[in-house]
Simulated scan of single mutants.
Amino acid sequence: MSSLDESSTKILVLGDSCVGKTSLCHCIAGGGEPPGGGRSFDSTIGATVVMAWHEYRAGTPEQRTELLELWDIGGMVAHRQAAQVFFEGAVGAILVHDLTNKRSEENLATWLTMLDGKPRGAAPKSSKDPAAVALKVDIESCNIPVLIVGTKADLVPHKGPVSYDRLHIDSLKIILRGSANSITLSRFFDSCLDRTRRTSLNSSSSSFFTKPRSMTPNLPGASASAAAAAANVTNRTMSPYTSVLMGS
């Protein structure tokens, strides 16, 4: 399932169910709390697309405003194989875990494998934090830019930085411009847009993530309803900060 609009850039938001992916998307888009003033979202089934603006290379002569598609992919175990029909056309991925749920962090390796098809082995035991070392290697070897985001930072303020780009956020609050998290996020989006530029200059690329937009999903294990939902979405332009529900 490729990008909804030729002028926007598709970025996947992946992670286990209920880790805060939907809240994060609205946080990035500047929406703050959920519509209606509530404090939580229902679990996503299929995919939801949230549109957001980004200032590419802000403060430089190359600065320009770009439209991003944040594809919030449902994380339920039963739907993971079907979720891959939404991966096509993505030029970056945000992997989300709950800082209060260690298993959701351990499962990030599974989401990386879904992205690039590379199996992940056991973490090395030669460091104080072998899981972090293994995840750093996996991120650097992935064929698209990847950013790790830990949510619910307000509940675990003792969590410190790690050896690779990672955000620890309270996704019920807007990310303040000029903050460390804002700068890291901006650099990540810039790298995704740089990849888009390289892809346009090399149209012969055969990468899974740069296949023609006309492709109809036909992945093993994908449910018929998910495939139909993906195939029936047509390209269209939407206002930023709006959500488009996909799947059922």
Rank of each mutant, 00 (worst) to 15 (best):
His79Asp: 09
Arg80Met: 11
Gln81Pro: 01
Gln81Met: 13
Ala82Val: 03
Ala83Gln: 02
Gln84Tyr: 00
Phe87Val: 03
Phe87Tyr: 15
Glu88Asn: 09
Gly92Trp: 01
Gly92Asp: 07
Ala93Tyr: 01
Leu95Asn: 02
Leu95Tyr: 01
Thr100Gln: 04
Lys102Cys: 04
Lys102Glu: 05
Ser104Arg: 02
Glu105Phe: 11
Glu105Tyr: 09
Ala109Thr: 08
Leu112Ala: 03
Met114Pro: 00
Met114Leu: 14
Asp116Lys: 13
Asp116Asn: 15
Pro119Ala: 14
Pro119Asp: 13
Arg120Phe: 04
Ala123Ser: 15
Ser126Trp: 06
Lys128Leu: 14
Asp129Val: 09
Ala131Thr: 09
Ala132Thr: 15
Val133Glu: 08
Val133His: 03
Ala134Pro: 01
Leu135Cys: 10
Lys136Trp: 01
Asn143Cys: 13
Ile144Cys: 05
Leu147Ser: 07
Ile148Ala: 03
Val149Arg: 03
Thr151Trp: 01
Lys152Met: 08
Lys152Gly: 05
Lys152Pro: 00
Ala153Trp: 00
Ala153Asn: 04
Asp154Lys: 10
Leu155Val: 14
Val156Ile: 11
Val156Arg: 05
Gly160Trp: 02
Tyr164Thr: 05
Leu167Arg: 01
Asp170Asn: 15
Ser171Val: 07
Leu172Tyr: 02
Lys173Gly: 09
Lys173Pro: 00
Ile174Cys: 11
Ile174Asn: 12
Ile175Ala: 08
Ser179Thr: 12
Ala180Asp: 12
Ala180Gly: 09
Ser182Ala: 14
Ile183Gln: 13
Phe188His: 01
Phe189Cys: 04
Asp190Cys: 07
Ser191Arg: 13
Ser191Gly: 03
Cys192Thr: 02
Leu193Glu: 00
Asp194Pro: 00
Arg195Leu: 15
Arg197Tyr: 09
Arg197Asp: 10
Arg197Val: 11
Thr199Ile: 07
Ser200His: 11
Leu201Pro: 00
Leu201Ser: 06
Asn202Cys: 08
Ser206Val: 09
Ser207Lys: 09
Phe208Ile: 12
Phe208Lys: 10
